[in-house]
Nucleic acid binder design. Structure first.
Length: 610
DNA sequence: AAAAAAG
């Protein structure tokens, strides 16, 4: 029987018995009060007995030094009191006497399932999906632009997120930061706005969650609004699909375990009452999909006036035609603090130029970060394109699946994710696969949320090793052990292709992606050939031919990257006009260096691969 | 034209 970090931690907490009597009724205690002296802190609502039981052990003001007031670097964070927090008052953990009852004792250990999952994975060839293959990330090109860019770090120890978060990082089995984390975390800890591009599966979620959680832990107390049944989260994380919001919530709960920072998720298709109850119990970071958030805002059950941190995952998707009005409403028309007051972070694997332009509206003096061949896939994914006429697609898929099953270990079907264009097409293909002896399920927007979640679970567990999906599953979902992504129908947008195939080849593992190309995909020929070339993939001659014949589509111009990855649209525009973006002579720095380069910068060098 | 996101 395995003993996990988390088990050890929960034992610690239980044995670290709280001598303070618990109140009978629980009241939300904001994180900045949970471990602080009562003296001059504004009184939380609730009976005095609760306040007396805070067990104040520190002055709390050591969490001062708001990152936003220090424009320089994230380094000022180092050793600014976390160690003291750990030892202070005899508690080995921060916030272990919150409000007279210890929420952390009732906090479900988010790591308990990890061991079970590991056991379940015996059937798979690899264990420890959380362990990242860092060899795969050597020599990754990095580009940064903006003013006063904080230097990257090489280890989590350098970042010093505090003992509780360090423990959680160990529990997650993260040995060292991924390239995007190495650059993005110091930037975010420095209080800077950020537009970050990094390859699919390279650890973006932690890159924005760590700084938000750490920032909230450092928060000075006192400013938090309260009133009625309205809750006032400090951090807001938006994502384009319900499942992705759930996944971010699950991750964030691990990162914030026992820190006293409360993360709540809200999304549509699920009973709102349950989510309202969760919110009432207190929320520091709200993870949400846009529709449900607007609903909550209109009901005045959530107010954004205390938001200090705003993160958009899959930010280019969030700002494209479908979502942009909703996002604009949330960010501009509600009570959210203005840009420059809040800290805004946008993350995606792709960032088309015109979306960057749109996005700059939400940002203030931001840093642009591109890690890896952005808008490209990793070369960990073997990409194949086959010309398959519509009428042959089914039988061709069947051939692939048969071959896969025969080559698989113990005749087991490897997890295969099949993307189709329409919801109807998804249902139809799933049914056909099932009656032909291939256990499948499907996920798309016409299914109930329950069905969607069941489908995802069933796929992840290997019970139905084939998942037929629409683009609802194209972005962000981290499904370990997806061996094969099939683009049964290719998307119209090359960026969607990049995100889809990014469901495999995650965390430094390899994967296979097969696309069925037909006459209806001619406009994709050129960008597809480019993406494949960027990733050192073999481009079939017939595709090169189509690509050379294809007219320059607007698609090409809006490509997020050029041949060498992401580019800050501010730089492109200033080059075009032969003007400095800031009009001040130094618009920033770009690093044409390997990602693990830890030494001095090369200012003035735009990029080594340009 | 399609998908997603509120009900």
């Amino acid at each position: 029987m395995r003993t996990s970090w988390a088990d050890a931690a929960s034992e610690t907490v239980v044995s670290n018995n709280n001598p303070v009597p618990r109140p009978s009724r629980h009241t939300y205690v904001p994180p900045h009060l949970r471990n602080s002296a009562v003296s001059d802190a504004p009184a939380p609502s609730g009976p005095p007995t609760e306040r007396e039981s805070f067990g104040g052990n520190t002055g709390g003001s050591r969490w001062s030094g708001s990152s936003r007031t220090k424009p320089e670097y994230g380094r000022q964070m180092q050793g600014n009191g976390y160690d003291a927090a750990g030892r202070d008052g005899g508690g080995s953990c921060r916030n272990n006497r919150s409000g007279g009852w210890d929420r952390r004792k009732r906090e479900v250990n988010p790591f308990v399932n990890d061991d079970k999952v590991d056991d379940m994975k015996q059937g798979f060839s690899e264990h420890e999906n959380t362990v990242i293959n860092f060899d795969a990330y050597e020599d990754i090109p990095v580009e940064i632009s903006g003013e006063n860019v904080p230097p990257p770090v090489n280890t989590f120890a350098e970042i010093d997120l505090g003992e509780m978060m360090n423990q959680n990082i160990r529990r997650c089995k993260y040995a060292k930061p991924t390239p995007v984390q190495r650059y993005a975390i110091p930037i975010a800890l420095g209080g800077r706005d950020l537009m970050a591009c990094a390859q699919t599966g390279s650890g973006k979620t932690a890159a924005f969650c760590f700084p938000i959680i750490s920032g909230i832990m450092r928060e000075q107390y006192g400013q938090r609004a309260r009133g009625g049944r309205t809750v006032y989260p400090l951090g807001l994380i938006l994502s384009p699909t319900r499942e992705l919001s759930c996944q971010i919530h699950d991750e964030a709960k691990k990162f914030s375990y026992q820190t006293g920072v409360k993360v709540v998720v809200a999304y549509g298709g699920a009973p709102i009452n349950q989510q309202l109850r969760e919110l009432e119990r207190g929320v520091d970071i709200l993870v949400a999909t846009p529709g449900r958030l607007v609903d909550l805002l209109e009901r005045a059950r959530v107010s954004l006036q205390s938001i200090r941190y705003l993160a958009l995952d899959e930010a280019d998707r969030m700002l494209d035609m479908g979502f942009e009005p909703q996002i604009r409403k949330i960010v501009k028309q509600m009570d959210m603090p203005n840009r420059g007051v809040r800290q805004t972070m946008l993350f995606s694997a792709t960032f088309p130029r015109e979306i960057q332009r749109l996005a700059s509206d939400f940002l203030s003096n931001y840093i642009f970060l591109a890690v890896g061949r952005v808008g490209s896939s990793t070369d960990l994914i073997v990409q194949r394109v086959e010309f398959v006429p519509e009428s042959d697609k089914r039988s061709h898929l069947m051939d692939l699946l048969h071959a896969q099953r025969e080559n698989g270990e113990h005749g087991k079907q490897a997890l295969t994710l099949v993307f189709v264009e329409t919801k109807k097409g998804a249902d139809s293909l799933e049914h056909w696969l099932c009656i032909n002896g291939f256990p499948s399920t499907t996920i798309h927007g016409d299914r109930s949320q329950q069905e969607r979640e069941l489908a995802l679970r069933s796929f992840k567990s290997g019970k139905t090793p084939i998942l037929v999906a629409t683009d609802v599953a194209a972005r962000g979902l981290d499904i370990p052990h997806v061996a094969h992504v099939v683009n049964f129908d290719l998307p119209n947008d090359i960026d969607d292709y990049v995100h889809r195939i990014g469901r495999t080849g995650r965390a430094g593992k390899t994967g296979l992606a097969t696309a069925f190309f037909d006459e209806s995909n001619l406009s994709l020929a050129r960008p597809l050939a480019e993406v494949m070339q960027e990733a050192n993939q073999e481009v079939p001659p017939w595709l090169t031919h189509y690509a050379s014949q294809a007219p320059y589509s607007s698609n090409r111009n809006r490509r997020s990257g050029g041949r060498f990855g992401g580019c800050d649209f501010r730089r492109e525009e200033s080059f075009g006009k032969n003007l400095d973006y800031y009009g001040r002579g130094s618009s920033g720095t770009a690093f044409g260096v390997p990602a693990d380069y830890g030494g001095a910068y090369v200012p003035g060098v735009i990029s080594a691969w340009d």
